[in-house]
Structures are given as structure tokens and as C-alpha cells.
Write a protein that binds this DNA or RNA. Structure first.
Lengths: 230, 230
DNA sequence: TTGACAAGTGTATAAAATACACATATAATG
DNA sequence: CATTATATGTGTATTTTATACACTTGTCAA
């Protein structure tokens, strides 16, 4: 068959496809969605900002490679990541054929502390998504896709659990939804919907923000790990 | 940093990750969902049945590689394929580290003719999904994931257009949904929903099936290419 | 004490999903 | 020709879900 010949002809080339993982790590900080960027230290794209990622080793799973890169480049550990897509344009890297398997994660803004303790702030930074400039490689495209994936995930999975390790108030969750989805909800209807799902429970505690009426503190119900939120 | 050392140590290994595409091509034949399998001619897994796929060349996109493999192994052309997932277990191939980028497609059963003209039926076969035995590699896992993907796609995209190139009747579409989703719909409500979306138009023609009342023939509205069906 | 601010709460209306029964067009049969 | 079997076609009432909308409450600061 014709294909067999091509196969042989292209075999050496085929051996040279590189595999990278690239993760868009988000947080929501006072109603602003931010993404974690790192400054590249090597060519290509030296000194440009980029999403977190790198080459996958032969002896690790893609997901493991992604988590390793996150830890090495930012100090963050235990991030829950979700598949987002695959990027494989032939010229996406100037060095060699390279495909990128991309992931999405979201973390509590307080983990920024961890970041600043272990990594020079010149090397890693939380950037509001509408302030992101030209990134290395095709990372701008990857980021756009990641935001789409994030929008799908917050209405169909419990991905936001990772954002509220110490409980949350309903207005807080609402602001997070509004920031990520880019639209507003009626306060009464949002609360009604969230409570009707019976995925969260009232802790009985309250929490105060600068001289306003205290808000009730809720937490995700542990018994319903993987059900969708919206 | 510690990772840098590992990087160097693993570089040779990293160069040896192979990239495959694997496509689950479905059809629905008289209410039965079938998948297209091909018999392997070479080791590993020689003579076992497998999904359609193979190594990606360095000079082609993943999607192009998938379509090339489909054409080479089954003769099918012009199949619209959708991303399904990535499979990367370290031992999924006994030969080398291999990651599989997987796709899903669905085609009109009448293209089976094309198949039998160009390919020996010993080499390729439509198999009902509940009759699929042990496949090569991890293709049973890939098939399960592909079915999940297909279920999502038929309620959120116009993927079924590819299944009805010459128009369709509403009961036909309903049977297809029921076969793929594994549940039944009320006939009146299904028709109401489908028509309310205004994605299909009445052709004015009718079609007959063996001594029953003729059914109206519809077609997808060309102006609304990419809207979701359910 | 008053004002500013965000949190908390209930009801009425509209839209969507669901449940449900009978008439009709064809081919096959006697 | 009348009868039967079979799958198609059609409308309405009910339930569920989503949406729209206004006033009261608790805290801090002035």
C-alpha cells in the first residue's frame, strides 16, 4: 500500500516529535481572574513570559510531567489539573516538531505566598488575563483555549473546590463565577440555585469583610465529591 | 535546580516518545451502534482487531495523520473527526513509550460499500459495540472514552449531519439518539424539541419503509452549520 | 444616631421539560 | 374489498426550572 512506503520514508522524522505539557494555572483575586506566568531563562523565546510547562520525560505520565514542571518552576504542589487540549501546529516551536498537551488548574490566591517564598518574583507572576501580552510559543492560543475549558469546568465539575480550601461565602462563589464567565447573576437566584444542588453545607460560622454585614460560611459537602455545580 | 539535572538525564528517553493517532469510527445501522475495526497485520498484537490509527509523521498535523491512516486502512475519505482524549500509560505499547491522541467520527452506513470495494472484509469490519472483544493495545479503553465523547458530541454539536447526507426522517434521528445515548425519548416531545431548534427543514418529500405510513423527509438547514442539536 | 455598604430573604411570572392518547397512511392477509 | 398490523403524525395539560424583582438586616465609620 502507498502509505507503507511513506511510513518508512518518514520514520526518522517521526522519531523526532517532541512532547511538552503546558498548564494554565488560574486564580481569582478580588474578582479578577489571573493566570500564572513564568519568565523563560533559555532560548527559544528567552526572557519572554510563558505558561508553565516543559518537556515530558520518557518515564513519567503526561500529567506527572505537568505537575513536576509546575513544582520546579513555581513551587506549587498539589494542584488539581484537568485536560484542556492539544496543540500541534508544525511551526509552533522554532527548534523542532513539538506537540503540547495542555492542562488547566485553579488555586487559592493565598498560595501566592508559597510562590514568593520559593521563587523570585522576577521569574513568576500572577497576571490578570486581560493584561497578558505576547507570550512565548503559541501560549496565547493555549491560554484562550484554557479559559474556554475553565468556563466549561466550573459549570460541570467541582473544580472550584480547589479555590476554597477553608470554606467560602455564597457571594464569594458568585463573584468567582461572574469573573470567570464574564457575566452577572441575580444574587437571590444564584443563592437559590447553589443551595438547591445540596452540594454545600452551612458551617454555622460567619465571616466578616471590612465593616459589612457578616456572610455565612459554607463548605463543599465531602460526600458528593464529583458532582457538577451548575 | 534539581529538575534541570533530571531533564538532562532523561533527555535521550524523552526523544523516544512516539505519537500515534487512534480514531473510533462509528455508524448506526438499524438502531445498532457499530464501530469500525481493522485486523493488525504486524507485531505487536498481530492478527488482533484494533481501532484505526498509527504513527504520525513529522511533517503532518495530528488530524492529518489520523485521516491518512483512516484512508490507508479502510478507504474512507472525508470523515469529520473530533478530538476525544489522550492515552499515555507507560506500558500501553510493548515496544516503546507511545502516546495516543484519539479521535471520534461517525459516518453513513452506506459508506460500508466503499469499504468493501477497496478493502478485504477480512481486514476491516463494522462491529456492534456490545460485541467488541479484546482489542490490541489499550484500544478497549480508548473505545469506551470515544463512546463517552460521542454521547457528548451528539447533544452539543451537529456531528450527526455526517450520518445523514441524503436527508433523514425524525424517527430515524430519534432512533440514532436512542441507540447512542442508550435511553428512549417520547416521540411527540422529541419531534417538538428538534423542530423548535429550527436547525432542520422539511423537504416536502416523504420516504417509505416496508408497508408503514410514510415519514416526512427533513434535511439540516445549511445556514446553521455549527449550532448544537440538543 | 446616622449613613454607607454588602448580606440576607420570598414570591410572582415565564419558559422549558415532561406526561400522556388517539387518528392516519401503507402493505399484507384473508 | 375489508381487516389487521405497524409505525408515523399530532395537541394539550401539568410539572419543573429559570427568571425577574424590592425591601430588611448587620457591621463599621463618621
Amino acid at each position: 500500500m502507498q502509505g507503507e512506503k511513506n511510513m518508512r520514508k518518514n520514520f526518522e522524522l517521526y522519531k523526532n516529535i517532541g512532547v511538552h505539557t503546558i498548564t494554565s494555572i488560574f486564580t481569582v483575586d478580588k474578582g479578577v481572574v489571573k493566570v500564572l506566568l513564568v519568565k523563560r531563562k533559555n532560548e527559544p523565546f528567552k526572557d519572554m513570559w510563558a505558561l508553565v510547562g516543559g518537556a515530558v520525560y520518557n518515564n513519567e505520565l503526561l500529567r506527572e510531567g505537568a505537575l513536576r514542571e509546575i513544582k520546579e518552576k513555581t513551587g506549587l504542589e498539589g494542584v488539581k489539573i484537568y485536560e484542556s487540549g492539544i496543540f500541534d501546529k508544525l511551526d509552533r516551536s522554532p527548534i523542532m516538531r513539538m506537540i503540547a498537551v495542555t492542562y488547566v488548574g485553579i488555586v487559592d490566591i493565598n498560595k501566592v505566598n508559597v510562590l514568593s517564598e520559593t521563587i523570585n518574583t522576577e521569574d513568576a507572576s500572577w497576571v490578570p488575563i486581560d493584561k497578558v501580552k505576547r507570550l512565548a510559543y503559541d501560549h496565547n492560543d493555549i491560554l484562550l483555549k484554557a479559559l474556554d475549558t475553565l468556563k466549561e469546568l466550573i459549570v460541570s465539575t467541582d473544580i472550584l473546590k480547589g479555590l476554597f480550601p477553608n470554606g467560602f461565602t455564597i457571594p464569594e462563589v458568585q463573584k468567582t463565577y461572574e469573573a470567570i464567565l464574564g457575566k452577572e447573576f441575580d444574587r437571590r437566584n444564584f443563592r437559590k440555585k447553589l443551595l438547591s444542588l445540596r452540594l454545600i453545607t452551612d458551617t454555622g460560622k460567619e465571616i466578616l469583610f471590612e465593616g459589612k454585614r457578616p456572610a455565612k460560611l459554607y463548605k463543599f459537602d465531602k460526600r458528593k465529591e464529583n458532582k457538577s455545580v451548575f
